[in-house]
Amino acid sequence: MGAFATVGLKIDNWNISAGLRYDNRNLHSFKLGDVFEKISRNFSGLTGSVGATSVGDVAIKLNLARGFRTPTVGELASNGVHEGTIQYVIGNKELDPEYSWQIDLGLDYTSKLLSTQLSLFANFIDSFIFNHKLNGVKTEGYDTYQYTQGNARLLGGEFSIDFHPVRKLHFENTFSYVNAVQAHQPKDSKYLPYTPAPRWTYELNYTFINDGKVWDNTYAAVSMECNLRQNHFMRQMRQRRQHLRILY
């Protein structure tokens, strides 16, 4: 159950919008043999956002948002082999909901020859939920993973540029980067798992036909994707007593 309200306002060249939302979620799961335990949890959260967008040759976008996410049934109650990853996954019924503050900044510029976009974000998440490997632990012969949480900080952005000297020819480049760390952790365990590596994509395309008829949007393209080395990964997660208690 939830309720929300939004409001919009225009001041000169700026469009301003804001919203406020309240959610309440009740989760009840039934016991299934030795696989799933009975769980009853209630979560509630107040979130909102405020943002502004300018109109002009250079468009500016600013936004501040408060986020809220409740743990899923899988994160709370998993206890078995995940067939897609061949990992033995264990849930954690004591997980708290995630709360976050996110700041976004965007810059857009478009001309006859060039289109560019820059998007930057900073996300600070309390009780961030993630899945990590229990070092040296195997269950039924499988590597064992368990959901846990910690305070996280994610910084990143994306830059794209499209150079089109003529209308039918486009040189498109996009670069994206994310740095995701867990607060108050040593170097070997501070980087969050599954963080994507820096990536650069490139495409050169030429449109032969663009007449709105049968063969509309006929084009040829050459593209490339380059994923750079990811040196920021979780090398080791410190074992915690509650992990072993839940496991055994």
Rank of each mutant, 00 (worst) to 15 (best):
I90H: 00
L9W: 15
Y99Q: 12
G80E: 07
I11V: 15
L62F: 06
E75I: 12
T53Y: 09
L113R: 13
Y88A: 08
E37I: 03
A18Y: 09
S119W: 04
V50C: 02
S44W: 02
G56Y: 11
I16V: 08
S17R: 08
V55D: 07
L76H: 01
A65H: 00
N42M: 13
V81P: 05
F68N: 14
F36Q: 13
V73A: 11
S111V: 02
S40G: 10
G56R: 11
I60L: 14
K93I: 02
L20K: 05
I103Y: 15
L9I: 11
G67T: 02
G91C: 02
S111M: 01
L113K: 14
I16Q: 00
S100W: 03
V89T: 10
G91H: 01
L46P: 07
D23Y: 04
D108W: 03
T116L: 11
S44F: 05
G56A: 13
T72R: 07
L20G: 08
I103L: 15
S78L: 10
Q117W: 04
L32F: 13
S17E: 10
I11P: 07
V50E: 00
G106T: 09
F36C: 09
V35A: 11
S119D: 14
V55Q: 10
N15P: 04
D108Y: 06
S40E: 15
V50Q: 00
L76I: 04
D34G: 12
T47S: 15
E37R: 05
L27H: 04
S111G: 03
K61D: 13
I103S: 14
G67R: 00
L64P: 05
Q102H: 02
V73K: 10
L107R: 04
F30R: 13
I103E: 13
N13M: 00
G19I: 01
R41N: 11
L113N: 14
L107G: 04
T116N: 10
T85C: 01
Y109H: 02
L9H: 15
K31H: 09
L62C: 02
V50Y: 00
Q117M: 09
V58T: 08
L95T: 06
L20D: 01
L105W: 06
L113M: 14
N26T: 14
N15I: 06
E37K: 07
S100F: 01
P97G: 08
L107E: 00
S49A: 10
D96S: 13
G56D: 12
F68I: 15
K93R: 12
D34H: 09
G74T: 12
N63L: 06
A65I: 03
F68L: 15
L46E: 10
T110M: 05
P97E: 12
V73Q: 12
N15E: 12
I39K: 04
A52C: 03
V35K: 12
L118I: 11
V55R: 10
L118D: 05
L46A: 07
E94Y: 12
V73S: 11
R41P: 05
G8W: 07
N63M: 06
D23E: 13
V55T: 13
G67N: 00
T85R: 05
K93V: 01
K10V: 14
S111L: 00
G8C: 06
W14Y: 04
G33P: 02
T47W: 05
N13S: 07
V58D: 01
Q87C: 02
F68Y: 15
E75C: 12
A65L: 01
